[in-house]
Design a protein around this nucleic acid. Structure first.
Length: 575
DNA sequence: GCCGTTTTCGGCCCGACTGTTTTCAGTCG
């Protein structure tokens, strides 16, 4: 069973306990355990074999036993009891914005509303407005939210959110009353999926900012409007929250609205032990009289310094050890996009790209790259017009010619060779060895079982003919699930055979995930960050890959293509 | 339910907004 399945059961248990009115801290415990399991980079079942699960944060004796029970029977006692006492569809009600556990419970006990369909019927009948604690407005809001849920639900890929957020933050900066405006939230942390977009603004005239905000292009509907906080729905169904604070509180506000929740919970515990408390308005002494100015608030650096910590980059704020690292002054010097010297994975009109070798090379050079590798598809990718040996030979000549003709960038010969069903490569080894750089990728038969897929990848990695494993898990963001394999075994093989793992930065993939990249780097396997560009505009997507790398705590030395070409090749030679 | 160089018991982050209330509960992030 996948980790996501275990996590789902724990998270559902949390929601069911909440609805049945159980202890809120018990709820939180299940939520935290669910997060831990979800973020675990290796399979939970492997972790069980390696030792007691209680070593994982937020998992104690009781939940560890529940997880074993899930493995053995697919479920556990508490979960079964809760499911029997409540209708199946009740968890769906919690998806409706504005409905929490208390309201869901009331709907169920008084109106026998147990799923979205019956909720909708109750709304149309007008019976909801009669319930104590409910009214006409609540009923209207529920009707609107059901409709919105139907149109669009859940988290969506980061690149979509960035496209929506960028123009809005620019528009805010152009507003007269705005001194500073930044995007916060999970967009700033570069989480791979995003539910809503947060904007933080410094201004001495909040009312003017709110007025400008609700009238911006792209703002479709106002959900809530106050003097410091306004929530709207943007085109594309993203919810956006705007917070406006005084300029002297901008740092603490930006920090607050960047999150993550888990990072803040840890920081606040720490603050408490120091006699301090943290809010969006600053870090305050607990025993100071009302109205005393904060100890820190102007910048994020000030906020962290007040807690005895170095400034922590947003991408690391997930409570995965960054606070201890900041305390010990042992934070990594994270990679940035400027460190990337070349792109090792891209396509041209020879296979399924839109531009020629020369066009891609010039665009890459203008983007700032020192070298690129042209890696078109191999013959097995028929729909992508993949290259067989004869066409590849001609392609090699064309690449050399382009390299001669174009100044300011080195153009290297490569291929993205298919790793076939049985783990063999789609082109002869001696031909591959004539190339400068070979990316090996899985493009078909992705539904193989874990064991078969693992053996398939191991065979390719140990072939001696590939330099990097391309888009290692095959997932498409919001589309195709990653395929399953033994990641630890792959790491060990990459280490042994000197194969790098790719962080594929293209907006639709973002593959590897940050947890995996971090694990690989810790084991000593180098990463490469590539865009897999199919057009001249693709190179800018490197930023998405760099975001993943930063979330994985990677420094420049973890990433091969931060090196000049010759130095990079030295690693492959074992030098 | 989890956790612990102040603790194995007693804590567990903090504040804004809405809607339904006549001072606050519920929800959200």
């Amino acid at each position: 069973m996948r980790n996501a399945e275990y996590a789902r059961l724990l998270a559902q248990t949390a929601a069911l306990i909440e609805i049945s009115g159980g202890n809120v801290y018990r709820v939180r415990a299940f939520q935290k355990a669910a997060r831990t399991v979800e973020k675990l980079p290796i399979s939970l079942e492997e972790a069980m074999n390696d030792g007691p699960l209680t070593r994982l944060p937020g998992i104690g004796k009781s939940i560890a036993a529940d997880l074993v029970s899930i493995r053995d029977s697919g479920s556990f006692e508490l979960y079964n009891e809760l499911r029997q006492s409540l209708p199946d569809g009740i968890l769906g009600l919690m998806q409706v914005q504005g409905l929490g556990p208390k309201k869901v419970k009331a709907l169920y006990t008084h109106l026998e509303v147990g799923d979205l369909a019956s909720l909708e019927k109750a709304v149309e009948d007008g019976t909801i407005a009669q319930l104590p604690g409910f009214g006409a407005k609540t009923q209207d809001n529920i009707r609107r939210e059901i409709a919105r849920l139907r149109r669009q639900a859940g988290r969506r890929p980061l690149p979509m959110a960035i496209m929506v957020a960028g123009p809005i933050v620019e528009a805010l900066r152009a507003v007269e009353a705005v001194e500073r405006a930044e995007v916060g939230g999970s967009v700033r942390r570069r989480r791979e999926t995003v539910k809503d977009v947060d904007f933080v603004v410094a201004s001495t005239d909040p009312e003017a900012v709110m007025e400008a905000f609700v009238n911006l292009d792209g703002v479709r509907e106002v959900i809530a409007r106050g003097s410091t906080k306004t929530s709207v729905i943007l085109d594309g169904e993203f919810q956006a929250d705007l917070r406006v604070v005084a300029p002297e509180a901008f740092g603490s506000a930006l920090h607050h609205f960047t999150g993550s929740k888990e990072h803040h919970v840890e920081l606040r515990k720490r603050a408490k032990s120091m006699g301090l408390k943290i809010s969006e308005y600053g870090v305050f002494k607990v025993d100071a009289p009302e109205g005393t100015p904060p100890v820190a608030s102007r910048t994020e650096q000030d906020v962290y310094a007040a807690l005895g910590l170095a400034w922590i980059p947003p991408e690391m704020r997930e409570n995965t050890g960054e606070i201890a690292a900041a305390e010990a002054d042992a934070l990594p010097s994270l990679l940035s996009a400027a460190d990337i010297q070349g792109d090792l994975h891209m396509h041209t009109t020879a296979s399924d790209g839109s531009h020629t070798i020369a066009q891609m090379a010039e665009a890459a050079r203008d983007f700032g790259h020192k070298y690129i590798v042209i890696t078109d598809h191999s013959q097995a990718s028929v729909v992508a017009n993949g290259l067989g040996p004869d066409r590849l030979r001609q392609h090699m000549i064309d690449i050399d010619a382009a390299n001669e003709a174009i100044d300011g960038i080195e153009i290297k010969k490569g291929i993205e060779v298919d790793i076939l069903k049985d783990g063999s490569l789609d082109l002869p080894g001696d031909l591959l060895d004539e190339l400068d750089y070979v990316v090996g990728s899985v493009h078909a038969s992705m539904k193989q079982d874990r064991q078969t897929m693992t053996e398939r990848l191991l065979k390719a990695i140990s072939s001696g003919h590939i330099h990097a494993l391309g888009h290692p898990t095959g997932r498409l963001l919001g589309g195709r699930d990653p395929f399953e394999f033994d990641f630890q075994a792959i790491i060990q093989a990459c280490l042994k055979h000197r194969v790098a793992l790719e962080i594929n930065a293209s907006a639709g993939r973002m593959d590897l995930k940050d947890e995996h990249a971090r694990l690989a780097a810790q084991a000593g396997v180098p990463l490469v960050i590539n865009t897999d560009s199919h057009t001249t505009t693709g190179f800018a997507q490197i930023h998405f890959g760099v975001g993943i790398a930063r979330r994985a705590w990677l420094e420049p030395h973890h990433v091969l293509n931060t090196l000049p070409w010759d130095e990079m090749m030295n690693w492959y030679k074992g030098a």
